[in-house]
Nucleic acid binder design. Sequence first.
DNA 1: TTGCTCCTCACGTCACGTGAGGTGGC
DNA 2: TTGCTCCTCACGTCACGTGAGGTGGC
Lengths: 267, 267
Amino acid sequence: MTHLSIKALRHYHDVGLLEPAEVDRWSGYRRYDTTQVAVAQVIRRFRDLEMPVDEVRAVLTAPDGDRRNQIIAAHLERMEEQLEQTRTTVASLRRVLEARSSTVPIDYRSVPAITALAIRSTVTVSEFERWWVGAFQELHAALAAGSLRRGGPDGALYPGDFFELECAEVVAYVPLDGSGSGAPRPGRTELIEVPGADLAVLLHSGALEDMDQTYGTLGIHVVERGLGVDGPIREQYLVSPLDVEDPGDYRTEICWPIAGRTADPGD
Amino acid sequence: MTHLSIKALRHYHDVGLLEPAEVDRWSGYRRYDTTQVAVAQVIRRFRDLEMPVDEVRAVLTAPDGDRRNQIIAAHLERMEEQLEQTRTTVASLRRVLEARSSTVPIDYRSVPAITALAIRSTVTVSEFERWWVGAFQELHAALAAGSLRRGGPDGALYPGDFFELECAEVVAYVPLDGSGSGAPRPGRTELIEVPGADLAVLLHSGALEDMDQTYGTLGIHVVERGLGVDGPIREQYLVSPLDVEDPGDYRTEICWPIAGRTADPGD
DNA sequence: TTGCTCCTCACGTCACGTGAGGTGGC
DNA sequence: TTGCTCCTCACGTCACGTGAGGTGGC
Protein backbone atom coordinates (compact mmCIF):
# COMPACT_ATOMS: atom_id res chain seq x y z
CA MET A 1 0.00 0.00 0.00
CA THR A 2 2.73 2.42 0.87
CA HIS A 3 5.32 1.16 -1.63
CA LEU A 4 7.87 1.16 1.17
CA SER A 5 10.19 -1.84 1.38
CA ILE A 6 10.14 -4.17 4.38
CA LYS A 7 13.69 -3.13 5.17
CA ALA A 8 12.70 0.50 5.14
CA LEU A 9 9.78 -0.14 7.51
CA ARG A 10 12.07 -2.00 9.91
CA HIS A 11 14.57 0.82 9.71
CA TYR A 12 11.91 3.44 10.40
CA HIS A 13 10.90 1.39 13.43
CA ASP A 14 14.51 1.19 14.66
CA VAL A 15 15.02 4.94 14.38
CA GLY A 16 11.57 5.76 15.73
CA LEU A 17 10.26 7.43 12.59
CA LEU A 18 7.27 5.14 12.16
CA GLU A 19 6.56 2.88 15.12
CA PRO A 20 4.26 -0.06 14.48
CA ALA A 21 0.91 0.26 16.22
CA GLU A 22 1.66 -3.05 17.89
CA VAL A 23 4.62 -5.38 18.20
CA ASP A 24 3.97 -8.99 19.15
CA ARG A 25 5.71 -9.73 22.40
CA TRP A 26 6.62 -13.26 21.39
CA SER A 27 7.25 -13.29 17.69
CA GLY A 28 8.37 -9.68 17.27
CA TYR A 29 5.91 -9.30 14.40
CA ARG A 30 5.18 -5.68 13.55
CA ARG A 31 1.53 -4.73 13.04
CA TYR A 32 0.48 -1.41 11.60
CA ASP A 33 -2.74 0.49 11.79
CA THR A 34 -4.61 1.57 8.68
CA THR A 35 -4.18 5.17 9.84
CA GLN A 36 -0.43 4.74 9.44
CA VAL A 37 -0.71 4.25 5.70
CA ALA A 38 -1.08 7.97 5.03
CA VAL A 39 1.83 8.79 7.33
CA ALA A 40 4.03 6.26 5.57
CA GLN A 41 3.15 7.75 2.20
CA VAL A 42 4.15 11.20 3.36
CA ILE A 43 7.39 9.81 4.74
CA ARG A 44 8.14 8.17 1.42
CA ARG A 45 7.73 11.42 -0.47
CA PHE A 46 10.02 13.34 1.85
CA ARG A 47 12.63 10.61 1.68
CA ASP A 48 12.37 10.62 -2.11
CA LEU A 49 13.31 14.27 -1.84
CA GLU A 50 16.32 13.21 0.24
CA MET A 51 15.09 14.93 3.34
CA PRO A 52 17.11 13.46 6.25
CA VAL A 53 15.17 11.12 8.54
CA ASP A 54 15.61 13.47 11.50
CA GLU A 55 13.95 16.25 9.57
CA VAL A 56 11.11 14.04 8.43
CA ARG A 57 10.52 13.21 12.07
CA ALA A 58 10.52 16.91 12.86
CA VAL A 59 7.92 17.51 10.16
CA LEU A 60 5.69 14.74 11.47
CA THR A 61 5.91 15.88 15.08
CA ALA A 62 5.71 19.61 14.31
CA PRO A 63 3.52 21.36 16.88
CA ASP A 64 1.67 23.35 14.23
CA GLY A 65 1.28 23.84 10.50
CA ASP A 66 3.45 26.92 10.46
CA ARG A 67 6.41 25.14 11.93
CA ARG A 68 5.83 22.22 9.61
CA ASN A 69 5.73 24.39 6.51
CA GLN A 70 8.83 26.18 7.70
CA ILE A 71 10.85 22.94 7.82
CA ILE A 72 9.55 21.89 4.42
CA ALA A 73 10.28 25.27 2.88
CA ALA A 74 13.80 25.22 4.30
CA HIS A 75 14.43 21.85 2.74
CA LEU A 76 13.08 22.89 -0.65
CA GLU A 77 15.26 25.97 -0.49
CA ARG A 78 18.33 23.84 0.20
CA MET A 79 17.44 21.73 -2.80
CA GLU A 80 17.17 24.85 -4.94
CA GLU A 81 20.60 26.00 -3.77
CA GLN A 82 22.06 22.63 -4.54
CA LEU A 83 20.56 22.76 -8.02
CA GLU A 84 22.05 26.19 -8.57
CA GLN A 85 25.39 24.83 -7.37
CA THR A 86 25.15 21.99 -9.84
CA ARG A 87 24.44 24.39 -12.66
CA THR A 88 27.53 26.48 -11.89
CA THR A 89 29.69 23.36 -11.56
CA VAL A 90 28.53 22.08 -14.94
CA ALA A 91 29.39 25.44 -16.50
CA SER A 92 32.76 25.42 -14.78
CA LEU A 93 33.47 21.88 -15.94
CA ARG A 94 32.65 22.87 -19.49
CA ARG A 95 35.11 25.76 -19.30
CA VAL A 96 37.81 23.51 -17.86
CA LEU A 97 37.38 20.85 -20.52
CA GLU A 98 37.55 23.50 -23.24
CA ALA A 99 40.86 24.37 -21.60
CA ARG A 100 41.55 27.85 -22.85
CA SER A 101 44.93 28.46 -21.34
CA SER A 102 45.12 32.05 -20.28
CA THR A 103 48.44 33.83 -20.31
CA VAL A 104 47.85 36.49 -17.71
CA PRO A 105 51.24 37.55 -16.36
CA ILE A 106 52.30 36.76 -12.84
CA ASP A 107 53.32 39.85 -10.97
CA TYR A 108 55.73 40.25 -8.04
CA ARG A 109 54.97 42.84 -5.41
CA SER A 110 56.45 43.92 -2.11
CA VAL A 111 53.69 45.37 0.02
CA PRO A 112 54.10 47.22 3.32
CA ALA A 113 52.15 46.53 6.48
CA ILE A 114 48.77 48.26 6.58
CA THR A 115 46.02 48.88 9.08
CA ALA A 116 42.62 47.45 8.21
CA LEU A 117 39.09 47.16 9.53
CA ALA A 118 38.49 43.44 9.79
CA ILE A 119 36.18 40.61 10.73
CA ARG A 120 37.75 37.30 11.64
CA SER A 121 35.91 34.03 12.02
CA THR A 122 36.55 30.33 12.04
CA VAL A 123 34.55 29.04 9.11
CA THR A 124 34.23 25.88 7.10
CA VAL A 125 34.34 25.78 3.33
CA SER A 126 30.66 24.87 3.11
CA GLU A 127 29.47 27.89 5.06
CA PHE A 128 32.10 30.14 3.58
CA GLU A 129 30.13 31.86 0.81
CA ARG A 130 27.38 33.04 3.11
CA TRP A 131 29.93 34.22 5.64
CA TRP A 132 31.91 36.13 3.01
CA VAL A 133 28.91 38.15 1.86
CA GLY A 134 27.82 38.92 5.41
CA ALA A 135 31.28 39.95 6.54
CA PHE A 136 31.91 42.39 3.71
CA GLN A 137 28.43 43.86 3.96
CA GLU A 138 29.06 44.53 7.64
CA LEU A 139 32.50 45.99 6.95
CA HIS A 140 31.16 48.29 4.25
CA ALA A 141 28.34 49.43 6.50
CA ALA A 142 30.78 50.15 9.31
CA LEU A 143 32.98 52.11 6.91
CA ALA A 144 30.06 54.14 5.59
CA ALA A 145 28.82 54.94 9.08
CA GLY A 146 32.13 55.93 10.65
CA SER A 147 34.89 58.37 9.97
CA LEU A 148 37.27 55.78 8.55
CA ARG A 149 38.48 56.03 4.97
CA ARG A 150 39.20 53.17 2.59
CA GLY A 151 42.85 52.72 1.64
CA GLY A 152 42.58 49.93 -0.95
CA PRO A 153 40.39 47.13 -2.28
CA ASP A 154 38.65 44.54 -0.09
CA GLY A 155 40.89 41.68 0.89
CA ALA A 156 40.96 38.45 2.85
CA LEU A 157 43.53 36.16 4.45
CA TYR A 158 43.30 32.38 4.16
CA PRO A 159 45.68 30.13 6.06
CA GLY A 160 46.76 27.02 4.15
CA ASP A 161 44.67 24.95 6.54
CA PHE A 162 41.51 26.45 5.15
CA PHE A 163 41.85 24.70 1.81
CA GLU A 164 43.32 21.51 3.19
CA LEU A 165 41.31 20.96 6.35
CA GLU A 166 38.22 22.77 5.08
CA CYS A 167 38.03 24.82 8.25
CA ALA A 168 40.19 27.61 9.64
CA GLU A 169 40.24 31.17 10.90
CA VAL A 170 39.70 33.45 7.95
CA VAL A 171 40.03 37.26 8.02
CA ALA A 172 38.02 39.59 5.80
CA TYR A 173 39.29 43.16 5.78
CA VAL A 174 39.09 46.62 4.25
CA PRO A 175 42.45 48.47 4.16
CA LEU A 176 42.31 51.85 5.82
CA ASP A 177 43.80 55.15 4.81
CA GLY A 178 45.69 56.02 7.99
CA SER A 179 45.81 54.32 11.36
CA GLY A 180 42.10 54.42 12.12
CA SER A 181 42.84 54.59 15.81
CA GLY A 182 40.26 56.08 18.13
CA ALA A 183 37.36 55.35 15.81
CA PRO A 184 34.48 53.21 17.08
CA ARG A 185 34.54 49.56 16.02
CA PRO A 186 30.93 48.42 15.75
CA GLY A 187 29.67 44.82 15.69
CA ARG A 188 32.13 42.11 14.83
CA THR A 189 34.64 44.53 13.31
CA GLU A 190 38.08 45.16 14.75
CA LEU A 191 41.26 46.95 13.76
CA ILE A 192 44.12 44.73 12.67
CA GLU A 193 47.50 45.07 11.06
CA VAL A 194 47.96 43.18 7.83
CA PRO A 195 51.70 42.45 7.77
CA GLY A 196 53.94 43.42 4.88
CA ALA A 197 55.00 40.64 2.49
CA ASP A 198 56.53 39.64 -0.81
CA LEU A 199 53.69 38.46 -3.01
CA ALA A 200 53.42 36.59 -6.26
CA VAL A 201 50.14 37.88 -7.71
CA LEU A 202 47.91 36.48 -10.44
CA LEU A 203 44.64 38.08 -11.53
CA HIS A 204 41.66 35.77 -11.80
CA SER A 205 38.97 36.98 -14.17
CA GLY A 206 35.61 35.28 -13.99
CA ALA A 207 33.50 33.05 -11.80
CA LEU A 208 34.71 32.05 -8.37
CA GLU A 209 34.20 28.34 -9.05
CA ASP A 210 36.99 28.53 -11.62
CA MET A 211 39.39 30.10 -9.17
CA ASP A 212 41.20 26.83 -8.44
CA GLN A 213 42.47 27.02 -12.02
CA THR A 214 44.23 30.27 -11.29
CA TYR A 215 45.40 28.92 -7.94
CA GLY A 216 46.89 26.01 -9.85
CA THR A 217 48.70 28.20 -12.35
CA LEU A 218 50.11 30.40 -9.64
CA GLY A 219 51.01 27.49 -7.38
CA ILE A 220 52.82 25.62 -10.13
CA HIS A 221 54.72 28.75 -11.01
CA VAL A 222 55.82 29.30 -7.43
CA VAL A 223 56.68 25.65 -6.78
CA GLU A 224 58.70 25.31 -9.97
CA ARG A 225 60.82 28.25 -8.91
CA GLY A 226 61.46 26.70 -5.51
CA LEU A 227 59.75 29.51 -3.66
CA GLY A 228 58.26 28.65 -0.29
CA VAL A 229 54.93 29.79 1.08
CA ASP A 230 55.26 32.41 3.80
CA GLY A 231 52.04 33.03 5.66
CA PRO A 232 48.38 32.97 4.68
CA ILE A 233 47.22 33.31 1.07
CA ARG A 234 45.60 36.64 0.30
CA GLU A 235 42.81 37.45 -2.07
CA GLN A 236 41.94 40.97 -3.19
CA TYR A 237 38.49 41.61 -4.57
CA LEU A 238 38.80 44.26 -7.28
CA VAL A 239 35.38 43.47 -8.74
CA SER A 240 33.24 41.15 -6.64
CA PRO A 241 29.70 39.77 -6.36
CA LEU A 242 28.95 42.84 -4.25
CA ASP A 243 29.75 45.08 -7.24
CA VAL A 244 28.35 43.35 -10.31
CA GLU A 245 25.84 40.69 -11.25
CA ASP A 246 27.63 38.75 -13.97
CA PRO A 247 30.23 36.31 -12.58
CA GLY A 248 32.15 36.76 -15.84
CA ASP A 249 33.02 40.29 -14.70
CA TYR A 250 34.52 39.36 -11.35
CA ARG A 251 38.17 40.30 -10.86
CA THR A 252 40.10 38.70 -8.02
CA GLU A 253 43.80 38.96 -7.31
CA ILE A 254 45.31 35.87 -5.77
CA CYS A 255 48.38 36.75 -3.76
CA TRP A 256 50.82 34.01 -2.79
CA PRO A 257 53.23 35.19 -0.10
CA ILE A 258 56.67 33.91 -0.98
CA ALA A 259 59.81 33.36 1.01
CA GLY A 260 62.84 33.95 -1.19
CA ARG A 261 64.98 30.83 -1.08
CA THR A 262 68.29 29.86 -2.56
CA ALA A 263 67.34 28.07 -5.73
CA ASP A 264 66.93 24.30 -5.37
CA PRO A 265 68.25 21.98 -8.00
CA GLY A 266 65.08 20.27 -9.20
CA ASP A 267 62.37 18.71 -6.95
CA MET B 1 45.99 24.66 -5.39
CA THR B 2 43.36 22.06 -6.11
CA HIS B 3 41.07 22.86 -3.18
CA LEU B 4 40.92 19.16 -2.39
CA SER B 5 41.19 18.13 1.25
CA ILE B 6 44.09 16.03 2.51
CA LYS B 7 41.66 13.29 3.40
CA ALA B 8 40.27 13.33 -0.11
CA LEU B 9 43.76 13.08 -1.63
CA ARG B 10 44.58 10.13 0.62
CA HIS B 11 41.32 8.48 -0.35
CA TYR B 12 41.97 9.00 -4.06
CA HIS B 13 45.35 7.39 -3.54
CA ASP B 14 43.79 4.41 -1.74
CA VAL B 15 41.26 3.81 -4.48
CA GLY B 16 43.73 4.50 -7.27
CA LEU B 17 41.97 7.54 -8.67
CA LEU B 18 44.93 9.90 -8.29
CA GLU B 19 48.20 8.18 -7.44
CA PRO B 20 50.97 10.41 -6.10
CA ALA B 21 53.88 10.80 -8.51
CA GLU B 22 56.10 9.51 -5.74
CA VAL B 23 55.64 7.97 -2.32
CA ASP B 24 58.56 8.08 0.11
CA ARG B 25 59.58 4.55 0.96
CA TRP B 26 60.41 5.39 4.56
CA SER B 27 58.05 8.09 5.69
CA GLY B 28 55.11 7.27 3.39
CA TYR B 29 54.93 10.95 2.38
CA ARG B 30 52.97 11.50 -0.82
CA ARG B 31 54.52 13.80 -3.44
CA TYR B 32 52.62 15.07 -6.41
CA ASP B 33 53.73 16.40 -9.72
CA THR B 34 52.69 19.84 -10.95
CA THR B 35 51.04 18.11 -13.92
CA GLN B 36 48.67 16.43 -11.48
CA VAL B 37 47.13 19.72 -10.44
CA ALA B 38 44.97 19.96 -13.54
CA VAL B 39 43.87 16.33 -13.17
CA ALA B 40 42.92 16.92 -9.55
CA GLN B 41 40.88 19.96 -10.53
CA VAL B 42 38.95 17.95 -13.07
CA ILE B 43 38.36 15.22 -10.49
CA ARG B 44 37.01 17.77 -8.07
CA ARG B 45 34.48 19.05 -10.57
CA PHE B 46 33.19 15.61 -11.41
CA ARG B 47 32.93 14.71 -7.75
CA ASP B 48 31.09 17.97 -7.08
CA LEU B 49 28.60 16.69 -9.64
CA GLU B 50 28.36 13.47 -7.61
CA MET B 51 29.84 11.36 -10.32
CA PRO B 52 30.91 8.06 -8.67
CA VAL B 53 34.66 7.62 -8.24
CA ASP B 54 34.66 4.60 -10.57
CA GLU B 55 33.17 6.68 -13.33
CA VAL B 56 35.60 9.52 -12.78
CA ARG B 57 38.37 6.99 -13.18
CA ALA B 58 36.74 5.79 -16.39
CA VAL B 59 36.65 9.36 -17.69
CA LEU B 60 40.32 9.91 -16.87
CA THR B 61 41.47 6.67 -18.46
CA ALA B 62 39.13 6.87 -21.46
CA PRO B 63 40.93 5.70 -24.61
CA ASP B 64 39.61 8.61 -26.69
CA GLY B 65 37.62 11.82 -26.51
CA ASP B 66 34.48 10.19 -27.88
CA ARG B 67 34.34 7.61 -25.14
CA ARG B 68 35.09 10.27 -22.55
CA ASN B 69 32.30 12.54 -23.76
CA GLN B 70 29.96 9.59 -23.82
CA ILE B 71 30.53 8.86 -20.13
CA ILE B 72 30.14 12.51 -19.21
CA ALA B 73 26.98 12.88 -21.27
CA ALA B 74 25.51 9.77 -19.68
CA HIS B 75 26.14 11.21 -16.23
CA LEU B 76 24.63 14.58 -17.08
CA GLU B 77 21.61 12.79 -18.49
CA ARG B 78 21.18 10.84 -15.26
CA MET B 79 21.32 14.11 -13.36
CA GLU B 80 18.62 15.55 -15.60
CA GLU B 81 16.42 12.53 -14.97
CA GLN B 82 16.95 12.86 -11.26
CA LEU B 83 15.98 16.52 -11.43
CA GLU B 84 12.83 15.64 -13.32
CA GLN B 85 12.08 12.99 -10.70
CA THR B 86 12.51 15.58 -7.97
CA ARG B 87 10.12 17.93 -9.72
CA THR B 88 7.41 15.28 -9.95
CA THR B 89 7.91 14.28 -6.33
CA VAL B 90 7.57 17.88 -5.17
CA ALA B 91 4.35 18.19 -7.14
CA SER B 92 3.10 14.92 -5.71
CA LEU B 93 3.99 16.00 -2.17
CA ARG B 94 2.08 19.21 -2.68
CA ARG B 95 -1.01 17.29 -3.78
CA VAL B 96 -0.72 14.94 -0.81
CA LEU B 97 -0.39 17.76 1.72
CA GLU B 98 -3.41 19.49 0.21
CA ALA B 99 -5.14 16.20 0.91
CA ARG B 100 -8.18 16.37 -1.30
CA SER B 101 -9.88 13.15 -0.33
CA SER B 102 -11.45 11.67 -3.42
CA THR B 103 -14.59 9.59 -3.10
CA VAL B 104 -14.28 7.41 -6.16
CA PRO B 105 -16.33 4.28 -5.51
CA ILE B 106 -14.71 0.91 -5.03
CA ASP B 107 -16.09 -1.63 -7.43
CA TYR B 108 -16.33 -5.42 -7.09
CA ARG B 109 -15.86 -7.53 -10.19
CA SER B 110 -15.68 -11.20 -10.96
CA VAL B 111 -13.60 -11.64 -14.08
CA PRO B 112 -13.13 -14.85 -16.08
CA ALA B 113 -9.81 -16.27 -17.21
CA ILE B 114 -8.57 -14.73 -20.46
CA THR B 115 -5.82 -15.37 -22.95
CA ALA B 116 -3.30 -12.57 -23.38
CA LEU B 117 -0.18 -11.67 -25.30
CA ALA B 118 2.41 -11.01 -22.62
CA ILE B 119 5.98 -10.12 -21.74
CA ARG B 120 7.28 -11.27 -18.39
CA SER B 121 10.50 -10.10 -16.76
CA THR B 122 12.14 -9.93 -13.39
CA VAL B 123 12.61 -6.23 -12.78
CA THR B 124 13.51 -3.94 -9.93
CA VAL B 125 11.50 -0.87 -8.99
CA SER B 126 14.27 1.45 -10.18
CA GLU B 127 14.36 0.04 -13.70
CA PHE B 128 10.63 -0.50 -13.82
CA GLU B 129 9.48 2.61 -15.69
CA ARG B 130 11.82 2.05 -18.61
CA TRP B 131 10.85 -1.60 -18.74
CA TRP B 132 7.14 -0.79 -18.70
CA VAL B 133 7.33 1.51 -21.71
CA GLY B 134 9.50 -0.91 -23.68
CA ALA B 135 7.30 -3.89 -22.91
CA PHE B 136 4.05 -2.26 -23.98
CA GLN B 137 5.59 -0.78 -27.09
CA GLU B 138 6.77 -4.25 -28.08
CA LEU B 139 3.37 -5.77 -27.29
CA HIS B 140 1.54 -3.14 -29.32
CA ALA B 141 3.90 -3.61 -32.25
CA ALA B 142 3.40 -7.38 -32.13
CA LEU B 143 -0.35 -6.88 -32.03
CA ALA B 144 -0.29 -4.50 -34.98
CA ALA B 145 1.92 -6.81 -37.04
CA GLY B 146 0.05 -10.06 -36.41
CA SER B 147 -3.45 -11.37 -36.83
CA LEU B 148 -4.29 -11.14 -33.12
CA ARG B 149 -7.11 -8.88 -31.93
CA ARG B 150 -7.24 -6.91 -28.72
CA GLY B 151 -9.83 -8.04 -26.20
CA GLY B 152 -9.45 -5.37 -23.52
CA PRO B 153 -7.20 -2.66 -22.10
CA ASP B 154 -3.48 -3.14 -21.37
CA GLY B 155 -2.83 -4.76 -18.03
CA ALA B 156 -0.05 -5.95 -15.77
CA LEU B 157 0.40 -8.36 -12.86
CA TYR B 158 2.49 -7.46 -9.82
CA PRO B 159 3.22 -10.00 -7.11
CA GLY B 160 3.23 -8.58 -3.58
CA ASP B 161 6.98 -9.11 -3.49
CA PHE B 162 7.46 -6.44 -6.11
CA PHE B 163 6.46 -3.63 -3.78
CA GLU B 164 8.00 -5.12 -0.68
CA LEU B 165 11.28 -6.53 -1.95
CA GLU B 166 11.58 -4.04 -4.81
CA CYS B 167 12.25 -6.83 -7.28
CA ALA B 168 10.05 -9.58 -8.71
CA GLU B 169 8.70 -11.15 -11.88
CA VAL B 170 6.22 -8.74 -13.43
CA VAL B 171 3.93 -9.52 -16.37
CA ALA B 172 2.74 -6.93 -18.89
CA TYR B 173 -0.07 -8.13 -21.12
CA VAL B 174 -2.66 -7.26 -23.75
CA PRO B 175 -5.87 -9.29 -23.45
CA LEU B 176 -6.81 -11.07 -26.66
CA ASP B 177 -10.12 -11.52 -28.35
CA GLY B 178 -10.13 -15.31 -28.75
CA SER B 179 -7.49 -17.91 -28.00
CA GLY B 180 -4.74 -16.52 -30.21
CA SER B 181 -3.36 -20.00 -30.73
CA GLY B 182 -1.32 -20.71 -33.82
CA ALA B 183 -0.28 -17.10 -34.27
CA PRO B 184 3.46 -16.29 -34.30
CA ARG B 185 4.88 -14.92 -31.07
CA PRO B 186 7.69 -12.55 -31.99
CA GLY B 187 10.45 -11.26 -29.70
CA ARG B 188 9.89 -11.49 -25.99
CA THR B 189 6.15 -11.98 -26.31
CA GLU B 190 4.35 -15.14 -25.30
CA LEU B 191 0.78 -16.31 -24.89
CA ILE B 192 -0.42 -16.68 -21.31
CA GLU B 193 -3.61 -17.26 -19.47
CA VAL B 194 -4.57 -14.59 -16.97
CA PRO B 195 -6.60 -16.49 -14.38
CA GLY B 196 -10.08 -15.46 -13.39
CA ALA B 197 -10.51 -13.70 -10.04
CA ASP B 198 -12.68 -11.71 -7.72
CA LEU B 199 -11.36 -8.15 -7.78
CA ALA B 200 -11.85 -5.05 -5.70
CA VAL B 201 -11.22 -2.26 -8.20
CA LEU B 202 -10.46 1.40 -7.66
CA LEU B 203 -9.81 3.87 -10.46
CA HIS B 204 -6.76 6.08 -10.10
CA SER B 205 -6.95 9.34 -12.01
CA GLY B 206 -3.75 11.28 -12.45
CA ALA B 207 0.01 10.98 -12.21
CA LEU B 208 1.58 7.62 -11.46
CA GLU B 209 3.59 9.00 -8.53
CA ASP B 210 0.34 9.53 -6.67
CA MET B 211 -0.78 5.98 -7.20
CA ASP B 212 0.25 4.84 -3.72
CA GLN B 213 -2.57 7.06 -2.43
CA THR B 214 -5.11 5.01 -4.33
CA TYR B 215 -3.36 1.82 -3.31
CA GLY B 216 -3.70 2.99 0.27
CA THR B 217 -7.40 3.75 -0.02
CA LEU B 218 -8.09 0.41 -1.67
CA GLY B 219 -5.86 -1.52 0.71
CA ILE B 220 -7.45 0.01 3.80
CA HIS B 221 -10.89 -0.77 2.43
CA VAL B 222 -9.98 -4.38 1.81
CA VAL B 223 -8.18 -4.88 5.11
CA GLU B 224 -10.98 -3.32 7.15
CA ARG B 225 -13.43 -5.78 5.64
CA GLY B 226 -11.22 -8.72 6.54
CA LEU B 227 -10.68 -9.69 2.92
CA GLY B 228 -7.46 -11.56 2.13
CA VAL B 229 -5.21 -10.97 -0.87
CA ASP B 230 -5.43 -13.77 -3.40
CA GLY B 231 -2.70 -13.58 -6.04
CA PRO B 232 -0.83 -10.75 -7.72
CA ILE B 233 -2.17 -7.22 -7.84
CA ARG B 234 -3.39 -6.15 -11.29
CA GLU B 235 -3.29 -2.78 -12.93
CA GLN B 236 -5.28 -1.88 -16.04
CA TYR B 237 -4.13 1.05 -18.11
CA LEU B 238 -7.23 2.72 -19.52
CA VAL B 239 -5.35 5.90 -20.39
CA SER B 240 -1.59 5.70 -20.06
CA PRO B 241 1.61 7.64 -20.87
CA LEU B 242 1.50 5.86 -24.24
CA ASP B 243 -1.81 7.54 -25.02
CA VAL B 244 -1.60 11.10 -23.70
CA GLU B 245 1.00 13.65 -22.64
CA ASP B 246 -0.52 15.18 -19.52
CA PRO B 247 -0.12 12.95 -16.43
CA GLY B 248 -3.31 14.50 -15.11
CA ASP B 249 -5.24 12.58 -17.78
CA TYR B 250 -3.92 9.13 -16.93
CA ARG B 251 -6.53 6.58 -15.86
CA THR B 252 -5.38 3.42 -14.14
CA GLU B 253 -7.53 0.76 -12.54
CA ILE B 254 -5.99 -0.91 -9.52
CA CYS B 255 -7.39 -4.39 -9.05
CA TRP B 256 -6.93 -6.12 -5.72
CA PRO B 257 -7.71 -9.82 -5.97
CA ILE B 258 -9.68 -10.83 -2.90
CA ALA B 259 -10.36 -14.10 -1.19
CA GLY B 260 -13.77 -14.08 0.46
CA ARG B 261 -13.30 -14.90 4.16
CA THR B 262 -15.63 -15.43 7.05
CA ALA B 263 -15.71 -12.06 8.74
CA ASP B 264 -13.13 -11.59 11.50
CA PRO B 265 -14.10 -9.86 14.71
CA GLY B 266 -11.75 -6.88 14.68
CA ASP B 267 -7.94 -7.28 14.13
C1' DT C 1 65.45 20.37 20.40
C1' DT C 2 60.79 21.95 19.69
C1' DG C 3 56.79 22.28 16.87
C1' DC C 4 54.59 21.26 12.89
C1' DT C 5 53.41 18.21 9.29
C1' DC C 6 52.62 14.07 7.53
C1' DC C 7 51.56 9.26 8.31
C1' DT C 8 48.55 4.93 9.46
C1' DC C 9 44.96 2.50 11.44
C1' DA C 10 40.18 2.11 13.06
C1' DC C 11 35.90 3.76 13.36
C1' DG C 12 31.82 6.95 12.24
C1' DT C 13 28.39 8.83 8.90
C1' DC C 14 23.65 7.92 6.44
C1' DA C 15 19.76 5.17 5.09
C1' DC C 16 18.94 1.47 4.19
C1' DG C 17 20.25 -3.40 1.25
C1' DT C 18 22.12 -8.04 1.63
C1' DG C 19 22.55 -12.27 3.15
C1' DA C 20 22.68 -15.98 7.03
C1' DG C 21 20.30 -18.43 10.16
C1' DG C 22 16.29 -19.05 12.87
C1' DT C 23 11.24 -19.24 14.17
C1' DG C 24 6.04 -18.35 14.20
C1' DG C 25 1.48 -19.21 12.03
C1' DC C 26 -1.59 -21.39 9.14
C1' DT D 1 3.64 -31.40 8.62
C1' DT D 2 5.36 -28.46 4.94
C1' DG D 3 6.23 -23.97 3.11
C1' DC D 4 6.03 -19.33 3.59
C1' DT D 5 6.57 -15.25 6.20
C1' DC D 6 8.42 -12.73 9.51
C1' DC D 7 12.18 -12.05 12.70
C1' DT D 8 17.14 -10.70 14.41
C1' DC D 9 21.83 -10.00 14.04
C1' DA D 10 25.98 -8.63 11.50
C1' DC D 11 27.96 -6.75 7.80
C1' DG D 12 28.21 -4.05 3.23
C1' DT D 13 27.60 0.32 0.57
C1' DC D 14 29.84 5.08 -0.70
C1' DA D 15 33.12 8.76 -0.23
C1' DC D 16 35.23 10.47 2.57
C1' DG D 17 35.49 12.89 7.89
C1' DT D 18 37.05 12.24 12.60
C1' DG D 19 39.92 11.35 15.97
C1' DA D 20 43.96 8.68 18.27
C1' DG D 21 48.51 7.80 18.38
C1' DG D 22 52.85 7.93 16.20
C1' DT D 23 56.89 9.71 13.37
C1' DG D 24 59.71 12.43 9.86
C1' DG D 25 61.93 16.87 8.57
C1' DC D 26 63.52 21.28 9.27
